[in-house]
């Protein structure tokens, strides 16, 4: 939302009425830095039940070609719901302190 010079646009170049014309533009906003703990995904133990996807408040479970492939750390806030709800908790998904590169 910055112009090429890095400045925010002035009133003359903004769309009128505070209308946001780019659907889903929030995906460019990072909320991952809120995390104190992070869920770590291990594909070997994942049974592809998708419960983490259905319960994630932050749309932060990455799915590709019909499979869960990991966690979107750009958006994950580290609430831990996915780990709590995972039938293979501690294996397919485990909670570790942020900064721990396990």
């Amino acid at each position: 939302m910055y112009d090429e010079t890095g400045n925010k646009p002035g009133w003359q170049s903004l769309p009128r009425g505070g209308v946001i014309k780019r659907p889903g533009s929030a995906s460019a906003y990072e909320t991952g830095e809120w995390r104190l703990e992070k869920p770590v995904y291990n594909t070997e133990h994942c049974i592809q039940c998708f419960l983490c996807w259905v319960y994630c408040p932050d749309s932060a479970i990455d799915v590709r070609d019909g499979k869960v492939i990991g966690v979107d750390y750009y958006h994950c806030k580290g609430c831990g719901i996915c780990v709590q709800e995972c039938p293979r908790t501690g294996r397919a998904l485990d909670m570790v302190p942020e900064g721990d590169n396990k």
Binding site: K8, G10, W11, Q12, G17, G18
Partner: peptide
């Protein structure tokens, strides 16, 4: 951004 949007109304 609020100020810019109000400025537009004045214009």
């Amino acid at each position: 951004y609020y100020f810019e949007h109000r400025r537009q109304i004045i214009a």
